[in-house]
């Protein structure tokens, strides 16, 4: 039985993104504000993000207006759901910095370095380390993903880690 979920790439159409933006921006912001009671600043941010999501799909969407209106409505509902979970901070905490940022001087460089190190590895190593340490795949799952044996996947992860250490020592240069 055949399920047709992998439609071949759509034919490229010329889409004037500037004209679509001009024709719909105020409508989207207005909808977020009036229908969902989102603040104007947030509504503008949501509308902007909706347009960004639209870029890669512009060629396949036949009815831009329907798509954009639906996108802003869903985005506003999502935003309201998330905002509903916020709890206001006691006054005493207003002057204190966000605890998540207490180690920002450490973790931001660490994150940047990690990306730099990944970028200096070959794609197979990037993939193996990403699957193992970012996605949390087991060695067996890494092996399936890379279509190899568990033994080889284990060796590959070890080898790529050593290579990552070397990159780090060399200042993360390829």
């Amino acid at each position: 039985m055949t399920a047709a979920v992998n439609t071949p790439a759509e034919l490229e159409r010329t889409v004037d993104l500037g004209a679509i933006y001009d024709a719909h921006y105020r409508l989207l912001v207005g909808l977020a504000i009036e229908r969902y009671d989102v603040s104007e600043t947030e509504a503008q941010t949501l509308a902007h993000d909706v347009f960004l999501a639209f870029i890669t799909k512009a060629n396949e969407i036949m009815d831009a207006r329907t798509w954009l209106v639906s996108a802003i409505c869903n985005a506003s509902k999502y935003y309201l759901r998330v905002r509903a979970r916020y709890v206001s901070l006691p006054d005493a905490l207003r002057e204190r910095p966000d605890p998540r940022l207490s180690r920002v001087q450490d973790f931001l460089p660490e994150q940047l370095t990690a990306r730099q190190i990944l970028a200096c590895l070959i794609p197979r190593c990037q993939l193996a380390l990403h699957l193992r340490y970012v996605e949390g795949y087991s060695i067996r799952e890494v092996a399936v993903e890379l279509r190899t044996t568990e033994r080889y996947a284990q060796k590959l992860v070890g080898k790529c880690l050593r290579r990552a250490h070397e990159c780090y020592r060399n200042g993360a240069r390829p």
């Binding site: 890669t56 990306r115 970028a119 993939l127």
Partner: peptide
């Protein structure tokens, strides 16, 4: 998989979040 390797090693904040998230999802 090659696309994934490139996506995950793009410099931080190279693209706005909706573009980055959509690309990773695809």
């Amino acid at each position: 998989q090659l696309a994934l390797a490139i996506t995950t090693s793009l410099p931080h904040n190279s693209y706005p979040l909706p573009i980055q998230a959509q690309m990773e999802a695809f």
